[in-house]
Every structure is written in structure tokens, then in C-alpha cells.
Amino acid sequence: MAIVELRFSALPEHVRTARLVAAAVARRAGVAETVLDEVRLAVGEACSRAVGMHQDRVDDDRPVTVTLDDGNGRFSIEVNDGVPQPALTEAALAEGAGLMPDLSTNGAGMDVIENEMGLAVILGLVDDLDVRTGAEGGVIRMSWPSGAKSAETVG
């Protein structure tokens, strides 16, 4: 098991660094080239969301932590925003899956699109996704197959 951990101040300029590191580690872990763009995008979205959680929080110097792990035939990424939040209920977690923007309506729907697209992108990209919140912060965990078989198992 190999783990790379990256901690950064919750600033937008560091999100690109997180994307580059995640893509480099994913490539080394054997994640298929065709999937690397998805990894890069998904980790960027998770980190952008984490940085956003720190907005308007004065004197908040807790870092965002990105943990990259290529154990057990999977390449997993965990992004912890470090912002303590009430734990999500099962019902709320189920509701989260419905956050894809509803484009069937114009007008009001546009605001939803503007604000909730980050999670929509992650939901659209990642099959194995786990979102949790708690006293230790909000955590988005995603994983992809690693190694030689990854290209066959990822659609």
C-alpha cells in the first residue's frame, strides 16, 4: 500500500497543484490513461468544493487534506475539507444523489445549475463515491480501478 498525502491552505490557487499531484500518482498507480482526465477533474471539483467551504470563515486556517492511496487494486482519493459539519443523515445522503441540475425548466433552474454543478460533475464522473460529514470535516471519497485491468472495468 502506498499513500501520498497533500495538505494545502484553502485557497483557489492550490487546487491546480492538487489536480497535478493526483493525476501523477494515479498514472503511477496504473490507472488507465483514458481515465486520468476524469481523476483530474473529479479531484479538482472535490478540492474546489472544499476551498469553498472555507469561504467567509474568518480565522480558519485548517488545511484541506487530499489522501491518495493505491492499495487493494483500487486508486482512491479522499478529500477532507477540514470544516466541522453536522453528520449527514441517510435521507440527506440519498437526496444528494438527486442534485443533478434539472434542466427541464428554464429560469429558476439556471441558479441551480450555477451553484450545484460541482457535485453534479463528481456524480457524473465517479461510480464509487462516498460523501460524509462530521466533526472532523466533510470528506469526499472516490476510487477507480488501478493496474492493468482498469481499462476493461471502467466504462
Partner: peptide, 16 residues
Amino acid sequence: DFLDSTGLGVLVGGLK
């Protein structure tokens, strides 16, 4: 080279 949801949000804002 790269576009994320923040960029999409800006384009949607421009469209509005």
C-alpha cells in the same frame, strides 16, 4: 486545456 464546474458556472452566468 481544462474546464471545471466553476468555469461552467461562469458561462451560465454569462448566458443569463
